[in-house]
Amino acid sequence: MSRFTYLFKRVALSIPVIIFGTTVTFAIIRLGPLSPAAAILGPQGDARAIRQIEKRLGLNDPLWEQYFDFMSNLFLFDLGQSWVINSGTPAIDLIISYAPRTIWLGFWAVLIALGIGIPLGFYAGLNPNTFSDYFASFGGIVWRAMPNFWLAVILVTVLSQSEQLFGFSWTSFIVETNVVTSPNLAVLKNPTRLLTDPGQAWTNLAKATKQILPPALVLGSASMGTEMRIGRTAVLETINSKYVETAKAKGVSPRVLVWKHIFRNALIPLVPVITAEAFILIGGSVLVETVFSINGIGLLFFRAAEQGDLPLVGTLMYLFILLIVGLNIVQDFAYTIIDPRVGYDG
């Protein structure tokens, strides 16, 4: 099977997954106890007004009709307008305006997990049963064990009182920032200002980065711990394999041994862990953004789901599903590149 037919097959196979995912979303929103009309009117709405709004939104149409409308619109990327959160605004516009903060958060979360977890795991695996290995391994377990909703709350508490607790003020550290707030990303939309107005722009970038680091650490902590531990195991397993011994017997230097013979083989079990981070990020961002009150996709999704804003929830779910399905395909392609034993057949 060629690379192209393989890709085609994978895309075709992902269609049922997408249909299933969006159907479940529809079922939960429409068959559950949520009433978008009541949410729009608030607690004071009377029965007549509610019926009126239900009629306007088409909530009294037969359910299958609503379902087919919902599905066909999604597949045609006619994503509709928000009902409740920001009535009348196209869902996609809302998402675009909320997305950058989440992407900024996700970027740092992934960077922390990959940049600290994997090197630390490889280091621990290359120096097994030393003090630094125990230190790193223990750290990995601790990071893995702290649930992100708990860690987020603790981190907010500690950072906002760091002056009293440690005599070190996080808020005035390097640049003045608040602990709980949305980062201002204007500078990223206009990167040229880093050159034209360096003083102000760099300060803003530093602020945005400093603000995002605590939530990103919370979001990346679990993946960081997992990657550290899997990385360590993978390296240990590879080091003790016969082909590494054969390479040693060939007279290969330790540097080449690590980078050529160990590293690439140890990466194979890490691939699914890295792509699985995407799921953790999407789920975790809801919690972390709420605690750190970052106006991002996670917060938007949470509020939309709570209030039965079907077009917005549907659109977000649809995009999440596409992202995850796409990442899975990318992951399988990454396998075929890293590990020649994985073919396109079967």
């Binding site: 394999s241 016969k242 082909y243 590494v244 011994e245 054969t246 390479a247 040693k248 017997a249 060939k250 007279g251 290969v252 050529k260 013979h261 690439r264 083989n265 194979i268 890293i338 590990d339 020649p340 034993r341």
Partner: peptide, 30 residues
């Protein structure tokens, strides 16, 4: 000395070649 003056052939040929590099690559390395 290793590989140059003394070479070694291991027990299990199935696992003594690195699976992610071509056979040629591994001979060329030596």
């Amino acid at each position: 000395v290793r590989g140059g003056d003394i070479a070694m052939v291991f027990q299990d040929p199935l696992s003594s070649l690195n699976p992610v590099y071509t056979v040629g690559n591994q001979i060329i390395e030596a």
